[in-house]
Design a binder for these strands. Structure first.
Lengths: 133, 133
DNA sequence: CGGAATCCTGCCTGATACTG
DNA sequence: CAGTATCAGGCAGGATTCCG
């Protein structure tokens, strides 16, 4: 069974990532970037690097745990860089990488979609809730 | 102050939604659509309507609870329609609305991004983990 | 200022059973 | 087939406190 299994393994290794498959790494990556904080962080970094405190102010309502956690995972995935400047009170700035900017375009679109179609969605919600009630 | 108030009201009605604000409805909408199951459901419905069982098969690993719940919220928001056909075993099909398709384009892009940049992200992860360890 | 550590509360998942 | 209902368990996420 060795050769047949090996051939099958090779076919699987060459197979493209498919987020529909539960075990595929791209499913996990999709889950990570499909996060409201990811969308907002990428959007916030549009106009250039920001400091930690500036980010937490821009993203109203984010807990510093989630902010730190999300920033870490984005840094780990190579979407942004974390720069520590050893000033008197330490300064930490976050900046998008090229990879991050490539995703940023998409996420800006998603954020814009949410804001643009808000009225329409709200109208549907009212209609739906009225029908159910 | 009547005229001024009217003018202000008009300005407010015209005011754009801003997902950066915690209280803004668009923030909640962004949180809803920034969901891996939403992305996958929209992607799955690209080639036309699908039945419940077909969806659950396509989205490997989804619990029927989350699938039903996500489909309900998408229906409520007017992104897809739920059609019940009273055949012998009842048939339920889900189909995207125009609103749903307008978001679908974006989400397909996000899903494609995840699959396309998987290798790059994995490389960054290895590098990051090596540096930390 | 920019976090790390802690606790604590939900929600998500998973399994199973039941309806129409 | 297409759900609803329920209970177990785990972990994501919020609030608070403390440190370099």
């Amino acid at each position: 069974m060795a050769t047949k299994t090996a051939a099958r393994k090779r076919a699987r290794a060459k197979a493209e990532y498919d987020a529909f498959l539960a075990g595929c790494p791209s499913r996990q990556l999709l889950a990570r970037i499909s996060d409201k904080w990811v969308a907002l962080i990428l959007a916030a970094l549009t106009d250039g690097p920001l400091r930690y405190s500036a980010l937490s102010r821009r993203l109203a309502g984010v807990s510093q745990k989630m902010l730190t956690q999300t920033l870490r995972s984005l840094e780990r995935d190579g979407l942004l860089t974390r720069t520590v400047t050893p000033t008197v009170p330490v300064t930490v700035t976050y900046e998008l990488t090229g990879l991050g900017r490539s995703l940023q375009d998409l996420m800006l679109g998603v954020k814009a979609w949410a804001e643009a179609h808000m009225d329409e969605v709200l109208a549907h919600r009212n209609e739906y809730d009225a029908g159910v009630a």
